[in-house]
């Protein structure tokens, strides 16, 4: 009943203890009409008390509901998943995990194999290159070393001799270059006279064949290897070997 004072305002449209207390029952007649006032008042008091008790209970229950609602909101566990559901999800997750793991493993093997192959190829290529370089170096060594027996009786060549040879080779190279230039110029002149004013770049590959071979036969091919091939057409390769023998001889 201590709660009573702050209840009334909140339940305006419903009968409050105060409503009952303040009710005024009309009287039927002027002499001794209706109920006994004292009894009626006592009854009304009891009704009021009962209502007050009900309101108090209700308020208490409402507070409890509110507290519980707050608790539920604070820890939102609507309902714990059943063990069966957990097991099903766990199995599904494990299956997914194993697929991912398999895919990763597959990719690991593939890339590892690819890498191994790649590295093997690179290694072989480098080995080949190394072998070729080494063979070339050995050949060079053999060429210089192998020539010695031919002059084994002669005293070791002096620096002066070597210098002379170098000078000779340089001069030879220069001569070759000069002759090639002369040959090319002659060729161009011939082309212009024989084939009209055709642009040299438009020459058919067979053009050089039309040149009389005698004019510059030996030296021209010598330098052919230094000059871009396409300038000279196909005819010079055969003579190229002549260059090597020539150089070989001059070294000796």
């Amino acid at each position: 009943m201590s709660i009573q004072p702050h209840q009334p305002e909140r339940v305006e449209r419903r009968m409050s203890p105060r409503d009952v207390r303040s009710v005024q029952l009309p009287r039927a007649t002027m002499l001794r009409p209706g109920y006994n006032d004292v009894e009626v008042d006592r009854f009304l008091d009891r009704v009021a008390d009962e209502l007050a008790r009900l309101h108090a209970d209700k308020a208490e229950l409402r507070d409890q509901v509110r507290a519980l609602q707050e608790e539920v909101a604070g820890a939102p566990v609507p309902e714990a998943p059943s063990d069966q559901a957990v097991r099903i999800l766990a199995t599904a997750q494990q299956t997914a995990d194993s697929y991912v793991a398999e895919a990763e493993d597959f990719s690991r093997q593939m890339t590892a194999d690819a890498r191994a192959q790649y590295e093997e190829q690179v290694r072989r290529a480098r080995e080949n290159a190394g072998a070729i370089i080494q063979a070339a170096q050995e050949a060079a060594a053999r060429m210089t070393a192998g020539e010695r027996p031919a002059t084994v009786d002669a005293p070791p060549r002096s620096t002066q001799e070597l210098e002379e040879q170098v000078a000779y080779l340089k001069a030879f190279g220069q001569a070759c270059r000069t002759q090639l230039r002369a040959y090319l110029e002659a060729l161009l002149v011939d082309v212009e006279t024989e084939w009209g004013r055709a642009h040299p770049g438009a020459l058919p590959p067979s053009a050089p064949r039309g040149i009389p071979a005698g004019s510059s036969r030996a030296p021209a091919p010598n330098v052919a290897l230094e000059a871009p091939r396409d300038d000279n057409g196909g005819g010079d390769e055969g003579a190229g070997s002549g260059q090597q023998s020539g150089v070989g001889r001059s070294v000796r």
């Binding site: 566990v77 998943p81 559901a85 097991r87 999800l89 766990a90 997750q93």
Partner: peptide, 11 residues
């Protein structure tokens, strides 16, 4: 942990 994550994802 399998149980834990399954429980977490279901709830």
């Amino acid at each position: 942990p399998l149980y834990f994550y399954s429980h977490l994802f279901l709830s």
